[in-house]
Amino acid sequence: MAGRLLAIGECMVELMQAEGGLMRKSFAGDTFNAAYYARLYLPSDWTVDYFSAVGKDMISDEMLAFMQERGIGTEHVARLDGHAPGLYMIHLKDGERSFSYWRSVSAAKLLARDGDRLRKAIEASDIIVFSGITLAILPAEDIETLLSELRRAKAAGKRVVFDPNIRPRLWDDADRMRAAITEGARAATLLMPSLDDETTHFGDASLEETIARYRALGVAGQVVKDGSEGATLVFGDERSHVPSAKVEKIVDTTSAGDSFNGAFLARLATGASPEDAARFAADVAAAVIQHHGALVAREKLPKG
């Protein structure tokens, strides 16, 4: 059955290490990465769109062309004068990554400024994906605009997917961060958190505490990711665990969670059980982290 997935957030210019001390340019961002992998595995009668904002400069033109070439719709990406995409650089050490960011004039910070535009895009979609980073870059009043529209979507029966993706460096206050993440979860029907984030920033003593805290917010489904330990799935009264896929050598963990999210949603949307979707997503994430960069070419990934 045909459908439409809408990912909301910030796509950035990505600089990564290349041979000879050079840097390679690409474009990536957590919800865009998820959209990319969802697009790879959704059937052709599904539409995948990105909702964001960019500038009117040359690099913004390149970014939009990049999205379109990969089958991601850009009709919901606003063009704003005086702004440009943000930029980040990946630093790698033994396969683990850290980042440096330049995003002070990022147009994506204004993505929710036009509430009517936001509502139109959400109403036209079946699955809506957003993250804690989406919330973190927005002014307080625009966070409420976005969450209000997502609550409406949830009430209308749409699948609203939230990855808390907690990045404290993006927030000016830890309590405000936790409050916004909590409200983001409350607006969702499917939550895809990382257990390490939850224990670190919410003080959960166990997986059980994380699941119970989010269940109390009215979240119908949870996929709690725990790195090499796999993922725990809670859908209504059904609970299961899916192990991670084996990896011979970790090259770059960038987009491990994002690729899992996108592949999982693609399989779930086309009728797979949560367990089967998670097993496939674990295989995709395992392939992704054996290559450099956030977006790995289709031929290097599992078929499906």
Rank of each mutant, 00 (worst) to 15 (best):
A7V: 02
G21K: 01
N33D: 15
Y36T: 13
Y37W: 10
Y37G: 15
L42I: 03
P43K: 03
S52M: 07
D61W: 02
M67H: 08
M67F: 11
Q68S: 15
Q68H: 13
R70F: 02
V77A: 14
I90K: 03
R97I: 01
S98M: 00
V105F: 09
A108F: 07
R113P: 04
S125G: 11
F130N: 08
F130P: 15
L135K: 13
E141V: 06
L146I: 04
R151Y: 09
A155S: 15
G157M: 01
V160C: 00
V161H: 05
I166H: 13
A179K: 06
T182W: 04
E183Y: 00
A188R: 02
T189D: 04
P193A: 08
L195S: 07
D197Y: 07
L207W: 09
E209V: 04
R213N: 15
R215C: 09
G218A: 08
G218F: 03
G221E: 15
Q222M: 12
V223I: 14
V224W: 06
E238S: 14
V242I: 14
S244D: 04
V247T: 07
A256Q: 03
A256D: 02
D258E: 07
G262K: 08
G262P: 08
A263D: 04
L265P: 10
A269K: 13
D276Q: 11
V284N: 12
A287V: 00
V288S: 11
Q290H: 10
K300E: 14
P302L: 01
